[in-house]
Design a binder for these strands. Sequence first.
RNA 1: GGAGAGGUCGCAUAGUGGACUAGUGCGCCGCACUCGAAAUGCGGUAAGGGGCAACUCUUCGAGGGUUCGAAUCCCUCCCUCUCCGCCA
Length: 423
Amino acid sequence: MLDRELIRRDPDFVRAGIRKKRLDPSVVDAFLQVDSSWRAVKTQLDEKAAESNRISKSIGQLIGQGKKEEAEAAKATTASLKSEISGLEAQERELEQSLRETELQLPNLPHESIPDGDDETANVLVREWGTKPTFSEAPKPHWEIADAHNLLDLPRGAKITGSGFVVYTGKGARLQRALFNFMVDHQTLTNGYKEIYPPFLVNRASLIGTGNLPKFEEDLYKVDDDLYLIPTAEVPVTNLYRDEILNAEDLTINLAAFSGCFRREAGAAGKDTRGLLRIHQFDKVELVKFTKPEDSYTELELLVTHAESILQALGLHYRVIELASGDIGAKGCKCYDVEVWSPGVDRYLEISSCTNFEAYQARRANIRFRREQGAKPEFAHILNGSGLACPRLFSAILEAFQQPDGSVIIPEALRPYVGFETL
RNA sequence: GGAGAGGUCGCAUAGUGGACUAGUGCGCCGCACUCGAAAUGCGGUAAGGGGCAACUCUUCGAGGGUUCGAAUCCCUCCCUCUCCGCCA
């Protein structure tokens, strides 16, 4: 959500920001129209309500003074006022809801510093770490390596649940478990995040808070009782502080959470179907920061280095990309993708996406902070990024550390967690 | 799942149809007293919205209803606690 005042005061600025993202700015006009009708009705309603309150109070006083007849007369005058009010109330409710719905459709505005461009071709390479490993013969993709070592059981995953659901077996399961244990330890013990273990199901309000609803319902799994499976721990963790006012001295709050993630991947059918590249359920460690507005861009840079630190600890080559305005998506102001090199599929794969949402999510989720006692609450800035996603890390390790004899060397940092040195 | 008790301002509590403009205590902020502090006294202490402003509206878990008027009465739902049942 955006600041209503800003849209009213400077709609052209908002339209320009939305256009820069290659999104349709007509929602701004829709907002302005509903907003002005809503305010007109609201003002009228408030006046009538004030009048009604005055009369009710005077009736109370008349009764207290024993003036029954005058009280009865006053009651009679309220009849038409009452029906007027209920009419206005109905109108106001309807307009307010429509305003809210329109408001939730508004995308976030891009930060002025981000590269301008239509799509991912305009993304900018920020830095690279390490180098591509070299192989005497063509490196195998991870699904072949996994098959050779019986790490995954894809057919049975499809049987017991459906395509895109993966069973990890034996050492594969152990490696998977080792990865998230290692990452949670690293983010908490080395990078100073507080560990959170959240529910994997959330209510609708939480998904509205992070911006997944109402627009992206088709990406989510829904269960009975109006609960949804989380697409990322970002949702429960960000919403920990929904409708709360934080103390300024507690900011920046740094949280790291392991969770399963559940995505329907509607619209991505037929894309990245092999192996672990795109699956409906996966594990991830998510990092979330709540900051003061003046700190959020410094914290974004830190957040990216925290995601990178996992790959550095494992010795995996990667690059950091800054997303262009046309590729960043609706919710973010500025976003860096961390892409790990996967030699077996000969691609860099997105393994973390670190985003500063500024106050966009905080407005939706009503997450504020107070600078000092008695000060007016302000919206916090919220950032998040993966630290990291397990399946693509799993596959990158298999592909990058495969040996000519078919074995795979486990990175040093991971050995205490997996309990073996090679596959 | 069943029975009962609850949900009021940061915390604790009062409030069973109009004087509630939600009281009181604690905490917090300011002032006084003090060399300074403690103690004490006085004052102030929720959020959001509309309006240029004066001012005004909404919110006592949420939503509906009764009433001229609801924290208070009625209905539905959510949450917490206690006990019972089932269960990892």
